[in-house]
Amino acid sequence: MHTEQPSPDAEPRIWGGTTLTERREVRRAALLEAALDLIGESGAGAVTMRAVCRRAGLTDRYFYESFTSRDELLDVLYRLVADEFLEPMTAFAVVDDPSRDRALSEVLLDKVLADPRKSRLFLVEPYSSTGLGQTTIAVMPAFTRLIQDHLFAHIEDPVRRRLAAVTMASGNAGMFSAWLNGTLRASREQLVDHLVATIAAYRTMYR
């Protein structure tokens, strides 16, 4: 008996007003949000498949629907958060424009303060043994290139331009990590002033 196969162009099955793909995306978002909550409370070490599922109110079947492992979930989440940090920096990093340095610094600080969970994941957790090392190594060049190609475009020597960008990116990451974990006591205004002064120092050093 011949059974007619559905056409590839057929409409997706609707259940409860949503398609299967939409329901999967909702579950995936819930798992990512649950992981962020756990990171905000106890760090990335608290993120396990069972803990994430329990927080999201889902079974492990739905976890593996979206992620092959806990490490993959953290990798995906870290990259999403990194993109959120990169976006405002890209918008304000006008080529070699000192007049925008304070606006860029303020936007970066505001982003750090906007969601402590995301800031902890992006700026603190890579310094602990959470399995994020390789992901951080893969993501950070985008931030270095932004600094190198925009903030320090005036530096003609490519080696010096690269040195300035790498040093500033890694130094700021360490500074924010110390600030967020409480080992660096400074106000928002002090951090903004420091960022502006640091950019100016590099501009002067290699001009």
Rank of each mutant, 00 (worst) to 15 (best):
M1T: 10
H2Q: 09
P8W: 03
D9H: 07
T18E: 15
V26A: 12
R28Y: 11
A29G: 05
A30C: 00
E33L: 05
E33S: 15
L36C: 05
D37L: 08
D37K: 10
I39V: 10
I39M: 12
G43R: 00
R50P: 04
A51N: 03
A51W: 13
C53D: 06
G57N: 08
D60W: 03
R61Q: 13
R61C: 04
R61A: 14
Y62P: 02
Y64S: 11
E65R: 10
E65K: 02
S66T: 07
T68Q: 07
T68M: 02
S69R: 07
R70E: 10
E72M: 04
L74Q: 07
L74M: 04
D75F: 01
L80K: 02
V81I: 14
A82Q: 00
A82S: 08
D83M: 10
M89T: 00
T90M: 09
V94K: 14
V95G: 04
D96W: 10
P98Q: 09
P98S: 08
R100F: 13
R100I: 12
A103R: 13
S105H: 05
E106T: 03
V107C: 11
K111M: 14
V112P: 11
V112I: 15
A114H: 14
A114Q: 04
D115N: 09
R117L: 12
S119E: 14
F122M: 02
E125D: 03
Y127H: 00
Y127Q: 00
Y127T: 00
S128K: 00
T130S: 15
G131W: 08
T135W: 01
T135F: 03
T136G: 14
I137L: 12
A142N: 11
A142H: 14
R145S: 15
L146G: 07
D149R: 06
L151Y: 12
H154G: 06
P158G: 06
R162T: 06
L163K: 05
V166A: 09
T167P: 07
M168K: 02
A169C: 13
G171Q: 13
A173P: 02
G174H: 01
G182H: 13
L195C: 06
L195I: 09
V196H: 06
A197K: 11
Y206A: 14
R207D: 11
